[in-house]
């Protein structure tokens, strides 16, 4: 049996809200240690992995490993209408593993709304832990998420793809659209800061800007974001969620293949 409890204004729900423009259904695995969500976008070019340890929930109990296909779009839609200070309880039982029950209790505890959400059949991903991958990239950029968001916003002014390339002591974002082009150089400052750019080998990736904007939305839930690039490999965007938590989200985005 699985039971987890969270307040409506929790980071978990904010993250679900933020990934909805990429995915509507997700594979959710729960164990005694926490919850893992994995999802592929409809085009099959972007992958999301979200990990939230059990202790991040107000209450968490899972006595048997479970894997479920959840229409997170429907779940978030139902929860949105609840009072912002309400408490949400999600339950799945072994006896009836065709749906989960989501209950929303008002802050005064005088009103409880419950709805049953049918589980969906979904390919279960068997992706190993992505964390180790981050050491093997040609270039990694640790930057404040506000910088990442601002750069993505600039690039959005030019409707097209974005090229991310390593340059001397930094990286370059370049977008070419119908109305012109936009170039952002992001350099390693001389003094120690919260920016860390490490380049092992030159690399350049062309990426769909629409996805970058979606990633930037979630990184707003964290102070820092890390981009990892390698030739011919998916871009990795990773951020911790919240300040003092071990929750994290990792995105993979396949680069465009020229020619």
């Amino acid at each position: 049996m699985l039971e987890l409890k969270l307040v409506k204004e929790s980071l978990f729900l904010n993250v679900l809200e933020a990934i909805l423009d990429l995915v509507a259904v997700a594979s959710v695995s729960c164990s005694s240690t926490g919850l893992k969500l994995q999802a592929m976008d409809a085009k099959g070019v972007a992958f999301i992995s979200l990990l939230i340890p059990a202790k991040e929930f107000q209450f968490y109990h899972c006595d048997k490993d479970l894997s479920m296909g959840i229409a997170i779009g429907d779940m978030v839609e139902a929860i949105r209408s609840a009072d912002k200070d309400g408490t949400i309880t999600i339950k799945a039982s072994d006896e009836n593993f065709r749906n989960i029950t989501v209950s929303i209790e008002s802050p005064e505890c005088n009103e409880t709304t419950s709805f049953s959400l049918l589980l969906v059949t979904l390919k279960r991903f068997c992706i190993p832990e992505l964390q180790g991958l981050l050491k093997k990239y040609d270039a990694c950029v640790q930057m404040p998420s506000v910088d990442f968001m601002r750069i993505c916003k600039y690039l959005s002014n030019v409707d097209g793809d974005v090229d991310i390339s390593t340059i001397d002591k930094g990286i370059r974002f370049f977008a070419l659209g119908k109305c012109g082009c936009l170039n952002v150089k992001y350099m390693q400052p001389e003094k120690a800061t919260d920016i860390d750019i490490s380049v092992q080998a030159p690399v350049s990736l062309t990426l769909d800007l629409k996805y970058m904007n979606s990633f930037a939305k979630v990184s707003a839930l964290s102070n820092q974001v890390k981009l990892c690039l390698s030739k011919g490999q998916p871009l990795v965007v990773q951020c911790k969620i919240g300040q003092k938590t071990k929750s994290r989200i990792i995105y993979l985005l396949a680069p465009k293949i020229k020619g």
């Binding site: 085009k43 099959g44 070019v45 972007a46 992958f47 396949a254 465009k256």
Partner: peptide, 14 residues
């Protein structure tokens, strides 16, 4: 489609 293949191959090699 080529991006999909790239991502699939990436997972296969993990």
């Amino acid at each position: 489609a080529s991006e999909q293949v790239l991502l699939q191959k990436f997972f296969e090699h993990m």
